[in-house]
Design a binder for these strands. Sequence first.
DNA 1: GACATGATTACCT
DNA 2: GGTAATCATGTCG
Length: 199
Amino acid sequence: MKLPATFYQQPDVVQISRSLLGKYVFTNIEGILTSGRIVETEAYAHINDQACHSHLGRFTKRTRVMYEAGGVAYVYLIYGRYALFNIITNEAGKADAVLIRAIEPIDGIPEMLARRGLTKVAANLTAGPGLVTQALGITTAYYGTSLTGDTIWIEDQGEAIPDELVVASPRVGIDYAGTDAALPWRFRLKNSKWTSPAK
DNA sequence: GACATGATTACCT
DNA sequence: GGTAATCATGTCG
């Protein structure tokens, strides 16, 4: 079941971030179908969150797509090397986002290995936001792609993650955000070997 | 138009 | 555990 636009347009980005655990992200890029079970996410809120790129209503070429209605991809390049994949949520103008940090590889594993330049499946295949995009074939060319189309989408396969399997902790790599860096907006599946190693 | 830097990862010691 | 790689974006002039 492909998640509909209404799922992404709910108002609470932290709640969406939490509920994306156990969902499946698919890409159909260059004729190759790949997918993975989402095991780690982070929430970024437009309001009261200095770590969010849209903080204080910044509206630039990069953040433009964040202001669209929930259900589009926000992809950008970090450190000149890695594309990071975010899902825009909330209604148009609210500019909330969820970063996909790690997945458990499911479909198209040989293709994901090839894209990563690896020969066998290991924990580092998709454990990290820059690695997920490499494995799935997502690049900045997919900036603004609708998640209700047939290129990148998310499916609910009926799996519900109980609260005791969810670990909430501070987000990674945003020390510059001051007190907001302590918000427990990173969600991981407990005991999953596919979550990212970064603290 | 110049310049500093980051939602990171890989490889070296 | 330390650090180099590498470039689009944002900020300042």
